[in-house]
Structures are given as C-alpha cells and as structure tokens.
C-alpha cells in the first residue's frame, strides 16, 4: 500500500503574523516558513504505519511554487520515500488543491491519504473533505488515533462532544489532529539522504486542473487592539468602575 501525505508550506507558528499595510495579505518578507504542523503529524503517522510493515511507500505532495520544495525536503528528511511538487505560482483555494490531489491519487493509487486537519495559515479545514467527496471515498477528519485492519481502519475522532470512534473502508482520506502523535526530529544524516531522494515536479496544466477562484477575499485586517486595562485597588473600586461603564 502507498500512503499519500499532503504538506503545506505555511508561516511558522512562532511568527507574529502581520497584515500588510494595504490589507492585501500577510507579510511573508523574511518570515520563517515551515511545514504545517498538522501535516507533520500526518507524515509522522504515515511513517509509523510504513515502519510497522503496513505500507510500502510514503509519498509527500505539496502544491505551490518552487519554494515549497524546501518543505518537501523536510518531509523526505523525516523519512518519506519520494516527493511530488504540484507546481503553481498562484495560491490555490481548497477546491483547486483537492482537484489537483485527486489527479495525483489517480496516478499513484494510494491506499490511504493522510492530511492535516487544517493549515494554520488560513484555517480553512476544507481540502480533506472536498478531496474525499471528489474521490468518492470515505473520510475521517480530526483523527487522534488511527488503526489499520486490512481493508478498513478504526479512527478515533476529536469532536466537540469528546471522542467519536468510527470504522471506515480503505482507501480513504484521514485528516489528523494534534494528539495523534508527536513528530520526530530530523536526523542530520537523513537531511543528506533526503537530497538524493526523488522529487517529481508536475504542473497544474499537466495534471489538467484549472485554477478556480470560488472564494473572493475582500481584505485582511488585524484584530482590533485591546485597550489598556487599569489596576483597581479593591473590590469597591472594581464595582464602581464596572458601574461607570454600564456593565453592572
């Protein structure tokens, strides 16, 4: 069985995201970029499945400009066997990404597709669900536990009410949540090995996918700044201040 893992290049979670002055997007000049943390968890899970003998190959896939090869190399250094870059200079919306992934699925015929539950840049949480629908295969989202049993899988999902356990037939799309595992560190010699692993580059046109713009972004704005608070001396003053503000 092959496992396909989606990798997205995103602004690192430690970076303080800043909106551009003209509201057209966020500033990425000199900003640290990383593998979307949920995707890292998806890859870790795929590697564990392979290393346990339940899959033969792990393929990492990313859609983006050549800069996303950096994140694919990280995936290869973590242990993926090969990488595919779906080359596009334009930012893709979830539906286009899902269509492009579907084309890769048709070429590779994986038994399992593992994705992060969402990317931490736009927090869309759509690609996995759309991909499953287009592929007409089952999906399990926000997985915190994954067990493969031959042609099916048992997935524990993190849902609002707690945990939900479901059984799905394979092939399927599973999107992963934070508690599924803790990704490994990359070993230095593996960075060197990763340089020699195959990386295929295929353009959107070659895949026959047209870019769709179903969503139109008006503008970006930072959240309003919180006003400075005051220190109150005692409970009486607190009550008075609340009253003054019409809150009591």
């Amino acid at each position: 069985m092959k496992i396909l893992v989606g990798i997205k290049r995103v602004v690192d979670y430690n970076v303080r995201v800043r909106v551009l002055a003209d509201g057209s997007g966020v500033d990425t000049d000199g900003v640290k970029m990383s593998v979307n943390p949920f995707d890292e968890i998806a890859l870790e899970e795929a590697l564990r499945i392979r290393d346990a003998g339940n899959a033969e190959e792990v393929i990492v896939v990313s859609a983006g400009g050549d800069e996303c090869q950096q994140q694919l190399r990280t995936g290869l250094a973590m242990g993926a066997d090969r990488a595919i870059q779906i080359q596009t200079s334009e930012g893709l919306q979830p539906l286009s990404t899902a269509r492009a992934f579907l084309k890769v699925i048709e070429r590779e015929d994986p038994g399992l597709v593992l994705l992060g539950k969402q990317a931490i840049d736009d927090d869309n949480c759509q690609t996995g669900q759309m991909l499953a629908a287009l592929w007409e295969r089952p999906q399990a989202t926000s997985a915190s536990k994954l067990e493969l049993n031959g042609n099916s899988a048992t997935v524990v999902r993190e849902v609002d009410a707690g945990l939900e356990t479901i059984e799905i037939d394979l092939p399927a799309v599973v999107t992963v949540d934070l508690r599924l595992n803790e990704p490994r560190f990359v070993k230095l010699p593996d960075i060197m090995k990763a340089k020699r692993k195959p990386m295929d580059v295929v353009s959107l046109e070659e895949l026959g996918v047209a870019i769709e713009g179903n969503l139109e972004i008006g503008h970006y704005a930072p959240p309003p700044q919180r006003e400075q608070g005051i220190m109150v001396e005692d409970a009486a003053q607190l009550v008075e201040e609340l009253k003054n503000r019409g809150l009591l």
Binding site: E182, P183, R184, F185, K187, L188, P189
Partner: peptide, 11 residues
C-alpha cells in the same frame, strides 16, 4: 528521554 528523543550525532 521523551518519545521523540533523538541522540545528537558526532561530526
């Protein structure tokens, strides 16, 4: 050592 412990290498 945590689960993801990785011993540093020698260069």
């Amino acid at each position: 050592h945590k689960d993801n412990y990785m011993q540093g290498i020698e260069i």
